[in-house]
Design a binder for these strands. Sequence first.
DNA 1: CTCGGGATGCGT
DNA 2: CGCATCCCGAGG
Length: 180
Amino acid sequence: MKILQKDFYNREADIVAQDLLGKYLVHKVNGIEKIGMIVETEAYMGPHDLAAHSSKGLTPRTKTLYETVAHSYVYLIYGLHYLFNITTGTPGAAVLIRSLEPIKNIDKKTNGPALLTKAMDISKTQHGLDITKGNLFVTESEIEKFEIVASKRIGVDYAKEWKDKPFRFYIKENAFISKK
DNA sequence: CTCGGGATGCGT
DNA sequence: CGCATCCCGAGG
């Protein structure tokens, strides 16, 4: 199946976030392909978006956000959970993958941003990788048409005028949406 | 060097 | 609702 290339990611984060729905996230681990269909995402638009890590400025942590397109941005939250993002066209912008529907070789829960990183074996080791080649990438799929729902993002109530913006996207009535 | 907070999940 | 439990950025 066709691997999504840089031109796909080199657009605004909210566009990429919606386009990623229904695509397959693939991670090859020890020769085994773990595959999940992306069913829920969130867009973080860039430094002006107060919910985005890049709004704190260019630091060692946010370097990948500023300087790459189509790379993985993985970080530890609350001291124990890894979250997986993909950098997009605007410097400082990224898409958070929030939920997957298990497709192949998945033996853990995937309906949440920290759950799917465990199930897909994604952690700090996978930070900063080029997502258009190597063992971690996203492919096209033959999923039929579906309806996209937009809503406010989760857990960003501190982000002032940005907290209620509709940058969370998910496939309507999919069973693997992260619970509210 | 300290200190505080955070894009969560789970059990109560 | 409380807890697990850690990295990073700001300030001294």
